[in-house]
C-alpha cells in the first residue's frame, strides 16, 4: 500500500467513523476562519469602498501599503498578536491568549489587507462605470459606497472566498496565538503540523485530504450560489 492510498483510506475511516478529534478540529477550523473572514469582509469592504470612491492626499500611499500587506507572513502576524495579548502585553488583561478568540483576531489581521486591497480594485472599476451617473444623481460619498458595494456583490463573494481560503489554510499565526491545545485551539492545520512532527505521516496526510475536500466543498457551494444569483440579475 502506498503512503497516499494509506492516507486516503485513513481519511475515509476518520470521516466515516466520526472521529471526535477530527470533527472537533474541523469545527474549530470552520468557526475561527469563517468568523475571521466575516469580520475582515465587514471592515475590508468598507475600506475598499472608501478607497475606491474618496480622493485624498496620500491615497496612493495607503493603496501601496495595503497591496504590500497582502503578502504579510502569518508568523509575523501571530507574533505581533502574541505580543499584544501576552500577559505583559498591552491587551494581556483580556486573557485572550491561547483561545479561539486570539486565533480569530490573528486571522482577521492576516486577511484584512487581502480583502481590502482586492475589494478596492473591484469597487474602483465599478465606480468608474457609475461615476458620472451617480454624480448626476448627486449621491453623497456614503450613498455611492453603499451603491457600489451592492453592485459589486457578486465579485465581492469571490474576494471573500479568497480571504476564507487564506484563513483556513493558515498555520503559523494560529499556532503561535492558539498554542495548538487539544480540544481547545487545535485546528486542522495545526493538527497536521503536529502529526507531521510526530512522524505520523499517514494521519497528517489524511487530515490534509479532509482539509482540502472541505475547502473544495465550501468553495463549490459559494460559487454555485454566486452563479445562481448572478444569472438571476444579469442574464
Amino acid at each position: 500500500m502506498t503512503p497516499f492510498s494509506e492516507a486516503l483510506g485513513l481519511a475515509f475511516k476518520l470521516v466515516f467513523t466520526g472521529d471526535e478529534a477530527l470533527y472537533s478540529a474541523v469545527a474549530l477550523s470552520l468557526r475561527v476562519s469563517i468568523t475571521a473572514t466575516a469580520v475582515a469582509c465587514f471592515l475590508g469592504f468598507l475600506i475598499g469602498g472608501l478607497l475606491a470612491v474618496k480622493r485624498f492626499t496620500g491615497r496612493s500611499i495607503v493603496i501601496a501599503a495595503l497591496n504590500s500587506l497582502m503578502g504579510l507572513p502569518p508568523v509575523v502576524v501571530g507574533l505581533v498578536v502574541y505580543l499584544y495579548l501576552s500577559r505583559s502585553g498591552p491587551l494581556g488583561f483580556l486573557g485572550l491568549l491561547y483561545t479561539p478568540t486570539a486565533m480569530i483576531i490573528a486571522q482577521t489581521l492576516l486577511i484584512l489587507p487581502i480583502v481590502a486591497a482586492m475589494s478596492r480594485q473591484v469597487l474602483e472599476d465599478l465606480h468608474l462605470e457609475y461615476d458620472e451617473q451617480f454624480r448626476s444623481l448627486s449621491l453623497t460619498s456614503r450613498e455611492t459606497v453603499q451603491a457600489i458595494l451592492w453592485e459589486g456583490r457578486f465579485a465581492l463573494v469571490t474576494v471573500a472566498l479568497a480571504g476564507l481560503g487564506r484563513a483556513i489554510a493558515e498555520v503559523g499565526a494560529v499556532m503561535i496565538v492558539g498554542g495548538n491545545i487539544d480540544n481547545l485551539t487545535r485546528v486542522m492545520t495545526t493538527a497536521i503540523a503536529l502529526e507531521t512532527s510526530r512522524g505520523d505521516l499517514p494521519l497528517a496526510m489524511a487530515l490534509g485530504i479532509v482539509l482540502l475536500t472541505l475547502a473544495l466543498v465550501l468553495n463549490a457551494a459559494v460559487q454555485g450560489l454566486r452563479e445562481t444569483t448572478y444569472r438571476a440579475s444579469h442574464v
Binding site: 444623481l137 448627486s138 453592485e151 440579475s233 444579469h234
Partner: peptide, 29 residues
C-alpha cells in the same frame, strides 16, 4: 451647485444601469 443638479436629470448616450431588476433601477432614485 449640487442643489441645482438635484433638480436636473441626465440620460447618457450609453445607458448606465444598475445590476438589478428594471423596477429596482427606478426605485433606486
Amino acid at each position: 451647485s449640487d442643489r441645482i443638479r438635484l433638480r436636473q436629470a441626465m440620460v447618457f448616450q450609453k445607458p448606465v444601469l444598475l445590476r438589478r431588476s428594471a423596477r429596482a433601477n427606478i426605485e433606486f432614485v
